[in-house]
Amino acid sequence: MKPAWETRFPNWRGDLFTLALLVIVLFPFVWIIQLSFRAKADIFDSAILFAPTLENYRALWQGNFALSFVNSIISATSATALAMIVGVPAAFALSRASFRGAHRIGLWILVTRMAPPVAFTIPLFIVFRYLELHDTRTGLVIIYLTFSLAFVIWMMKPFFDAVPRELEEAAAIDGCGTWKTFLTITLPLTGPGLAATAVLCFIGAWNDFFFALILTRTHASTAPVAIVGFMQYVGWEWGRMAAAGTLVMMPVVLFSIVVRKYLVHGLAAGSIKG
């Protein structure tokens, strides 16, 4: 006869192992957060307990980091909004249309998604020089569209595929035109998909480092680029880097908990770039 607790948790060995593994995997994440609350003097101290301080955050606020943070918010939000406005109808059209070439467009989008960013950066850098888009948020938004537009189309199409065609046929008989049907019937039914797509698209732009590193200097530099700035002083400011890192990752972590269910699909689409 097994003890009562063992019948209640028949998989306790695996569960225990799972917990241990989870702690190990999440350790770097938790560790960098706690580092951000350490005073300068405590950073090299190995004691687990320390007096938490907001000194690092205060320093960030007084420096230029706030501007970079705002830049990040504005450029990621604008890129997401634009990509959604243009990409969602396109995804619907691809899902419903029977014209030839739809599959080729799909493959093109996949390639765009997969292409190394440097391949777009070289030509766009030169073009931006002429258009004076260097170190501007507009320039950033434009270059973010190279991946977010393709991502939105790629992500939304299956959601539209899942809406039964009969609903649109019923609406056609009821008197709706093609795009009115889209707005009144199809779009409301893909609500969760829209939300997940927007969130993942935002995360993709928010997480960008490469484009912002190359195309911005001071005015439009984003939060991830600003963090790198802290590495350039002698005796790196670990506390400030950790605090900035924590600020940058918090929205992303919160958002992804919200759209957890759709991560599988979204990540296959590679919205989160490495």
């Binding site: 989870l22 995997v25 999440l26 770097p28 994440f29 560790w31 960098i32 995360i203 928010w206 997480n207 480092f209 991830p224 963090i227 790198v228 590495m231 880097m241 950790a242 890192g245 940058v248 990752m249 992303v252 972590v253 958002f255 992804s256 908990i257 957890r260 991560l263 990540l267 989160i272 770039k273 490495g274």
Partner: peptide, 18 residues
């Protein structure tokens, strides 16, 4: 869900953490 955290982190944060 917990295991997903590393994947969504901004690469730059992963970089400075490691």
């Amino acid at each position: 869900s917990g295991m997903l955290v590393p994947m969504v982190l901004p690469p730059i944060v992963v970089g400075i953490t490691w």
